[in-house]
């Protein structure tokens, strides 16, 4: 039974992976956006290679992780394929896991390659095997966490990806600026540090700082623990919120209400 359930999750993830990684919004917000942000951050500034590696890894994994998961449900609602899944012997949990897995794999894949390239250029010889492993564990956890954040935002029962992308960007940027990517936690005031602890990205950047140049305030093990707690919490919240909002995706009345709102606005 478990084997069959797992097979369904993998099939759903495979389908999501094939269908959605080439979508315009995924390419723009997952690849182009962080690339140009990095360029504008690095160019013309004297930033240490360690700082660049930490920034690039954190930003790539955060942006790629939050790129795929928010677009799947709105698109599948619009194309009615979500209804097909619900009429099939597939549970809500399996549908959500399929989305998280596809999104996390996409993020982990791209972030891993970019991390490897930058480690080879700058630091690979100076880092131990355990440190490299810790970096990859951090990327993997951020891939899961970012996917869960994206999925949570897509709980709004909309069939328009633009609706979701607006909200996700409103949440993503404050989390990025509070995440210690640009200013390390150690350089912030007490209040600033407390505020930074709200962003889950802080724990990835702190983990990377601890591994790359031992300049973190929070110990690496604690960062991993906090990232795991975030993942567990968001998984539970996601399940209950999606369970609540999912029927609204199939409601013709709510869809037509949305349509009426749009017509009125136009």
């Amino acid at each position: 039974m478990f084997k069959h359930d797992l097979k369904i999750v993998l099939t759903l993830a495979q389908k999501n992976f094939i269908l959605y990684i080439k979508k315009g919004s995924v390419l723009i917000f997952g690849l182009l956006f962080p690339f140009f942000m990095l360029i504008s951050w690095i160019l013309g500034r004297s930033i240490s290679p360690d700082q660049i590696i930490i920034g690039i890894i954190s930003m790539t994994s955060f942006f790629t992780a939050t790129a795929v998961s928010p677009v799947i449900l709105p698109i599948e609602t619009r194309e009615k394929s979500l209804e097909r899944l619900f009429a099939a012997p597939v549970s809500l949990m399996q549908i959500l896991l399929g989305i998280i897995l596809a999104s996390a794999l996409y993020s982990f894949g791209i972030s891993s390659i970019i991390t490897l390239i930058f480690l080879l250029i700058y630091r690979i010889l100076a880092l131990s095997f355990i440190s490299v492993l810790a970096i990859y564990l951090g990327i993997f956890l951020m891939a899961l966490l970012g996917s869960l954040i994206g999925l949570l935002i897509s709980a709004k029962p909309s069939d328009q990806t633009s609706d979701i992308m607006v909200i996700i960007n409103l949440i993503k940027f404050p989390l990025l600026f509070l995440g210690g990517v640009f200013i390390p936690l150690s350089n912030l005031s007490t209040y600033g540090s407390i505020l930074n602890l709200v962003s889950p990205l802080t724990y990835l950047t702190e983990l990377l700082r601890g591994v790359v140049n031992k300049s973190s305030i929070i110990p690496p093990g604690f960062n991993i623990l906090i990232l795991c707690i975030w993942i567990a919490l968001l998984s539970i919240i996601n399940y209950y919120i999606h369970k609540r909002t999912m029927p609204k995706r199939f409601s013709e009345v709510s869809n037509s209400k949305n349509m009426m709102k749009k017509v009125k606005l136009k």
Binding site: K15, I18, P89
Partner: peptide, 28 residues
């Protein structure tokens, strides 16, 4: 149940064969 909807809800970016394979797998 086998359900035939009014508007096709097969995955438009998958081929006919990929859709059948996907559907078959989720039905076990």
């Amino acid at each position: 149940f086998g359900i035939v909807p009014e508007i096709s809800n097969a995955y438009s970016d998958l081929t006919v064969w990929q859709n059948l394979r996907f559907s078959g797998t989720i039905y076990g």
